[in-house]
């Protein structure tokens, strides 16, 4: 047990010495790994923000019914009764045309336009929440309600949510694909670094073997090397993403403000950050192990 700890400590120290022995190589490798990993990590950061934004603004699935402008009080009452007694409907909210007009007038830009109009352009409307929120059931309900007398238009408010969902799914797949490709890239970078190390360290490896070194003893410093290089590369990627987040924050704030949304770009979350660094370290270790199998243990 004690010997095991000693061996690992020595291997770790040796790996660190080898890393520090060629600082330029180290910096270049870390930049290559960092930038490669910053792409999927940055994508994940943007995606997480987009999801948060979508989550904030996604309304509950609902159907809006717009009545024709000439619908009278009685028709409105009839429809209201029908909707309230409909078994497929959970709740109904009536929004009168006067209410809508008042709300729209509060909007700075629209006020002048509305003032200029000869009469209220807005129709009476019902906002319906269905019992069954599945997309097909909602579509069916919408087309049924659209056939009620004096209902001019039934609009499914969930339609754009579904499109947004599909878009975010696409983005998620893109980030995963990017992570996979650049993960393979990281393995390749480590593979090559270790290959060069094995070639330059041939004498030491040979002598160590002759003096009774086990395969593990020879492998360990290289594996630590790959692991530490991956870990540091992951940290560089994290720093790049954090820097980009800070840089983009004020322009994004400004843009969100013009849309009347309070939205601040947040950096990578704790879980995502830990995952990034952990994955980078694991891939570094994997690249080193593959390289060792290829270049160290193929011959007898």
């Amino acid at each position: 047990m004690k010997v095991w700890i000693l061996h690992h400590r020595d291997a770790l120290l040796l790996a660190l010495r080898r890393l520090m022995a060629m600082p330029l190589n180290l910096v270049l490798s870390l930049l290559a790994i960092g930038i490669a990993l910053a792409l999927p990590a940055g994508g994940q950061m943007l995606l997480a923000n987009a999801l948060r934004l979508a989550g904030d603004t996604t309304p509950t699935p609902q159907i809006s019914l717009f009545l024709s402008l000439n619908a009278d009080q009685k028709t409105v009452h009839d429809i209201d009764d029908q909707l309230r007694n409909h078994p497929g409907i959970k709740s109904v909210r009536f929004i009168s045309r006067d209410e809508t007009l008042a709300r729209m007038k509060k909007n700075e830009g629209l006020n002048d336009v509305i003032e200029a109009l000869p009469r209220n352009p807005f129709p009476d409307a019902f906002v319906v929440r269905p019992e069954n929120e599945g997309p097909e059931a909602m579509e069916q309900l919408a087309s049924e309600l659209g056939k009620l007398p004096k209902v001019e238009h039934a609009q499914l408010d969930s339609e754009w949510v579904r499109r947004l969902d599909a878009l975010l799914n696409l983005a998620r797949t893109g980030v995963a694909l990017l992570a996979l490709l650049l993960g393979v890239g990281l393995v390749a970078i480590t593979f090559n670094t270790i290959r060069l190390q094995v070639l330059t360290g041939r004498a030491e490896i040979e002598v160590s073997r002759l003096l009774g070194a086990t395969d593990g003893f020879i492998r360990r410093p290289f594996q630590y090397f790959g692991l530490i290089q991956g870990l540091l590369g992951g940290l560089v990627a994290w720093l790049i993403v954090a820097g980009v987040t800070l840089w983009l924050r004020s322009p994004v704030d400004a843009m969100a403000h013009t849309y009347g949304v309070a939205f601040t770009l947040t950096p990578l979350g704790g879980v995502d950050s830990a995952l990034l660094v952990l994955a980078a370290a694991t891939l570094g270790w994997l690249g080193a192990s593959l390289s060792l199998r290829q270049h160290l243990f193929r011959q007898g």
């Binding site: 095991w4 000693l6 003096l211 009774g212």
Partner: peptide, 10 residues
């Protein structure tokens, strides 16, 4: 080197 390989206490 041989002692490091054998894991001798330093």
């Amino acid at each position: 080197l041989p002692l490091a390989i054998a894991g001798f206490p330093p």
